[in-house]
Simulated assay, not measured.
Amino acid sequence: MEIIGNLVVPVSIALIIIFGFCRKVPLFEAFTDGAKEGIVSMFSIAPSLIGLITAVSMLRASGFFEILTDLLSPVTSALGFPSEILPLALMRPVSGSGSFALLNDLFKSFSPDSFIGRTASVIAGSTETTFYAIAVYYGSVGIQKTGYTIPAALMSDFAGMVLAPLTIRLLGN
């Protein structure tokens, strides 16, 4: 099975090259045009990403998540949601790398096989980095008005977070 994983990228590249030759596509020109478009996209979304990363870093460093966790822990405990996971739940819609750092911390503190570890894993797997994705994808095509995208995406994230501990309880701890 490992050999398949090692061959996926080289075989994909070879197939792209073969397909390009068969269709008589100028491969190098197409590659450089794509690279140029990528750089333009990168510069158009960079301000959003820099602002997002800065805000997440400031919130984490300021202790905001710890204060909010302490404030909300009576409510989350009453709902059966482990308060230790609340920083992950708050970080996940904003930052993938930040939320995975928190997930790793939870694994170190409680083990991946604990109720907290399993619940955190379900949250990490069933939610999205909503604000990051919107900043990247909408920013790359120049959309400024997101309409119902953010409320719908956050409701989906919330559903994943609320259902995670219930799912772990139903499937057995």
Rank of each mutant, 00 (worst) to 15 (best):
I17V: 15
A89R: 00
I50P: 01
G63P: 14
G139W: 03
L170N: 06
P74S: 02
S111D: 09
M58L: 15
A101P: 08
L88Q: 05
F107A: 05
E84P: 14
L90H: 01
T69S: 11
T149V: 15
V40Y: 02
S114R: 14
E29K: 13
A159K: 02
K108Y: 06
S41D: 06
C22S: 07
A46T: 05
E29G: 07
Y132R: 04
G80V: 12
A135L: 04
S109L: 14
A46R: 07
P26M: 07
T149K: 01
T149S: 13
S12K: 05
R92E: 06
G147S: 10
I123A: 01
S97Y: 13
T130A: 00
A153T: 01
L171Y: 01
S114G: 12
A164G: 05
V11H: 04
G80S: 06
S140L: 03
M155D: 00
S83G: 06
D113W: 11
V141S: 10
F115Q: 06
G117D: 02
A35T: 05
A133Q: 11
G51L: 00
L68A: 13
A120M: 02
F43S: 14
F19M: 11
F100C: 06
P47Q: 06
E29W: 09
A124D: 10
K108N: 02
S140F: 04
V25G: 00
T32H: 00
I50T: 05
P87E: 12
Y132W: 09
S121G: 11
F43T: 15
